[in-house]
């Protein structure tokens, strides 16, 4: 059990809270630190921003070999998530996809952030975001 690990990042993991560098505009996710990963400002001033739950695939793979904990095929993508208020830069995150197949994916595909179970801590489910092509695509 590692409660503290999941406790301290719960705002990022459950609410897509990100941190915008006030010096260069870089949007840091999920890191919440006092140094900017892009401009190197230290100490940097970060402002909290919420990320939108819809973004665009920048690149992807579909994995076929993984431990049993993860169902295959398991797509993985780098996704640009804009800020929820439409301001500033997007955050570039990488995440697992769910309920999405290879033929539904290409560079530029729109995906939704979906709140899902990633693993458990003891018996306790740890939930955070995966991505998926919008459900309406499945109709």
């Amino acid at each position: 059990m590692s409660g503290p690990r999941y406790h301290r990042t719960r705002a990022q993991d459950q609410r897509l809270l990100a941190f915008e560098c006030q010096s260069c505009g870089y949007v840091s996710f999920p890191d919440e630190r006092r140094t900017c990963k892009r401009c190197g400002d230290a100490p940097a001033t970060f402002e909290e921003v919420r990320l939108a739950e819809r973004g665009e695939v920048e690149t992807f793979v579909v994995q076929e070999y993984l431990p049993d904990d993860i169902e295959v095929p398991q797509p993985l993508a780098i996704v640009d998530l804009p800020q929820a208020d439409g301001e500033g830069e997007s955050a570039r995150v990488y995440g697992l996809l769910t309920e999405t197949e290879l033929d539904e994916l290409s560079v530029g595909t729109e995906v939704e952030a979906r709140f899902r179970e990633l693993f458990d801590d003891g018996e306790r489910p740890i939930n955070s975001f995966k991505f998926a092509v919008p459900r309406e695509v499945k109709r």
């Binding site: 169902e71 489910p125 939930n127």
Partner: peptide
């Protein structure tokens, strides 16, 4: 789905 639970579906 295997990655869904009560909290995620309620969400």
């Amino acid at each position: 789905a295997r990655d869904e639970n009560h909290v995620t579906m309620a969400s």
